[in-house]
């Protein structure tokens, strides 16, 4: 699905009905709000329409013009808020910021001039103005609930990196009954020493695939009880600064991020060897996708 705002005119039935949803993939309508105007970018609000909030996206359909409607996925809504100050905007509204696929600065200047030729995919702001401002708080709450249903999709792990243990290798490890994490094949190797063929990153990164084969392993059930996760679990050893960086960049860690972390670790002038006594100088992060 393309990021950002887009045209949306797929309605169900003949009467001005609800938008067509992707029900096969579990999309459900959560809220319908009649009498809502929409203001896109710096443009003036468009004629009242109806706002539909589904578990995947926000849709606005015009009440008068059946060919007019917009949709934006929750995945693209980076921020939403209630705006009430008349100095900032004439009517109380739900203010949203939209993440577009690209970074460009120039759009703001050109938008206002040629409003008809507005490229929806570059719109970064959208305001939804309900005719009844007392609905704002409940709309905000519904926005929050639905946004939480839409975490970042997980990117596929890139298999070719040899520092990721394959699921098979892990099965072997688990079969040995080792309840502790194996830090590396060679526990005495230190982070600062990467001479020879030894892959440095391999000592600090482990990818564990928790699939159903591990259902019986006790040490894993504990973890699963606490978070319900069934998929990839990544442990990364890194400096606190890097750890903050990952954490702040979002909880969904793709393998690309792990790659970056591995590169960062390469650059760290760590002379310490990787064993338990040195752990507190860095951070272990667990990520459940």
């Amino acid at each position: 699905m393309a990021p950002g705002l887009r045209q949306f005119t797929e309605r169900r039935g003949d009467v001005a009905g609800e938008p067509v949803l992707d029900t096969e993939n579990g999309e459900e309508l959560r809220h319908v709000q009649a009498g809502v105007s929409i203001a896109i970018g710096n443009r003036s609000p468009e004629s009242p329409g109806t706002l539909y909030i589904s578990t995947k996206k926000v849709v606005w359909l015009s009440d008068v013009d059946r060919t007019k409607g917009y949709a934006v996925d929750f995945l693209s809504i980076s921020l939403h808020a209630v705006s009430r100050d008349p100095e900032a905007y004439s009517s109380p509204c739900i203010y949203t910021q939209i993440e577009t696929g690209e970074d460009e600065e120039e759009s703001e200047g050109s938008d206002s001039e040629c409003s008809d030729a507005l490229d929806l995919s570059k719109v970064t702001e959208m305001r939804l103005v309900p005719s009844d401002p007392s609905q704002l708080d409940s709309l905000f709450r519904i926005f929050c609930e639905c946004a939480e249903l839409n975490p970042e999709p997980i990117e596929d792990a890139e298999e070719e990196h040899n520092w990721i243990f394959s699921a098979d290798q892990l099965t072997d490890e688990t079969a040995e009954g080792d309840s502790e994490w194996n830090f590396s094949q060679n526990p005495t190797s230190s982070i600062g020493h990467s001479n020879g063929d030894h892959d440095l990153a391999r000592t600090v990164l482990q990818l564990q695939i928790n699939d159903h084969r591990f259902e019986d392993a006790e040490e894993m059930e504990d973890e699963r009880d606490s978070d319900g996760g069934h998929q990839a679990k990544v442990r990364v050893y890194c400096s606190p600064a890097v750890a903050w960086w990952i954490a702040c960049s979002g909880a969904q860690v793709s393998m690309a991020v792990v790659n970056v972390v591995a590169n960062e670790i390469h650059k760290q002038p760590y002379g310490c060897s990787l064993n338990e006594s040195t752990l507190p100088s860095g951070l272990w992060l667990n990520y459940d996708d």
């Binding site: 921020l79 939403h80 808020a81 209630v82 705006s83 905007y89 993440e99 926005f143 946004a147 969904q252």
Partner: peptide
């Protein structure tokens, strides 16, 4: 004008 807001983690 915004007094409270929801920010997407990503």
């Amino acid at each position: 004008s915004v007094r409270n807001c929801f920010i997407r983690g990503s």
